[in-house]
Design a protein around this nucleic acid. Structure first.
Lengths: 209, 209
DNA sequence: GGCTCATTCATACGTTCGTTTTATTCGAAC
DNA sequence: GTTCGAATAAAACGAACGTATGAATGAGCC
């Protein structure tokens, strides 16, 4: 038997490749080869390529969702109406990297989320569970309470903006033709930049109708 | 002969399909079928699938880059140091839709850009020209002048944030499991929401080191 | 030893892909 | 009327893909 479980080695390899090449750009053969497993192992352990992706996504998203929920719980325990900055930190922080700075797996995992979120493949869509919906709904009402003047659709736009900004490093990967662009900020700096960026954006006065 | 040039019909079909399914998710067969052309037409007119994508991207990006440059020129003609809000409007506006509100092709085109930007396929990367780099560089210095206290890498982070927020509608496409989420704001509203969102974000004070 | 069951392996199938090749069509130029 | 070149059409190629199948393996247990 392999030094570790074949199943988790498949998950690790798939996480790595899906994050880097997307769903369609990753072949089962590449996954099994990187995992040192047989081609049929994916079919045996997960059933299909789409279910492998779902398993990878669940493994990555679950701790992030848990961290978001815990963060919101902590904020609400301290004050019934947390300020915008705290909400942004609690919501976007785990999205950026659920790990301390310098962790290589953290950046890879955040990239995976973005890749999946933006993947046009149909199989990459149905992987969020009720837990993710519930947490998002709770943040939505918390933000609505902190920003009472904001119209519902503008608030919704801004919530999606948070997710989009998390994609910043992903955009950069494909957009580095300029010679003068500095290296993208490393994990921890990007996280702090994002929080100030998003806090200001969320706190903006409503757009005039 | 077809009612219009086969070449442009191929470009139209490819623009539509690339925007919707990404590079790898779009087959030459689907493009030629939608265009009402023969399978070999892509090879004849463009040489390869990758060059077809490049041609599509160039056709979409060129007017946007031109609009961005014209907008910056107009701002600089009026004042040597335009305010952040005007810079955001001039830079992000054409990205959202180069067309007046309600234009269907505009939304599709902006989606195409985002899809290409986020596509992990290698062939989707080398399509920006020196014109795009030059315009981006000019905006970078204009923003730097308007935000002198910002460190270079944080400014760079925020510039990428602008691009990311343009992707908001893309994120939404794959993230609509929630029942209570309102319909995404239609083109013109999204554009205005984005400008206020991004103006506030760009104007945020620097992150403490 | 003999049996079971979970796993791994090698292999093959059918499909789809991008690309190439060969033929055919069709005006216009001569 | 013939020639020529651009454009289209039809067919085929080799490769890569996801998936299914059936045999081999090997530990645990009677």
């Amino acid at each position: 038997m392999a030094p570790t479980d074949t199943r988790t080695q498949l998950l690790d390899a798939a996480e790595h490749l899906f994050a880097e090449r997307g769903y369609r750009g990753t072949s089962i053969r590449a996954v099994t080869e990187l995992a040192g497993a047989n081609l049929a192992a994916v079919g045996y352990h997960f059933g299909s390529k789409a279910e492998l992706l779902a398993a990878v996504a669940r493994r990555v998203v679950a701790p992030i969702t848990a961290a978001q929920r815990a963060g919101l719980d902590a904020l609400l325990a301290r004050a019934p109406e947390p300020p915008v900055a705290d909400l942004v930190e609690a919501f976007a922080g785990p999205l950026f990297d659920g790990m301390p700075a310098g962790d290589e797996g953290g950046a890879r995992r955040s990239r995976l989320i973005v890749t999946i979120l933006g993947d046009p493949a149909e199989e990459a869509r149905s992987w969020t569970g009720p837990a993710e919906d519930a947490v998002r709904e709770r943040y939505l009402t918390a933000f609505r309470r902190a920003l009472p003047d904001l119209a519902p659709d503008e608030l919704w736009f801004r919530m999606r903006g948070i997710l989009a900004v998390t994609a910043v490093d992903r955009v950069d990967v494909h957009n580095r033709p300029s010679p003068a662009c500095p290296a993208p900020a490393p994990g921890e700096a990007a996280r702090r930049y994002a929080v100030t960026f998003l806090t200001a954006a969320m706190s903006a006065p409503p757009t005039a109708p």
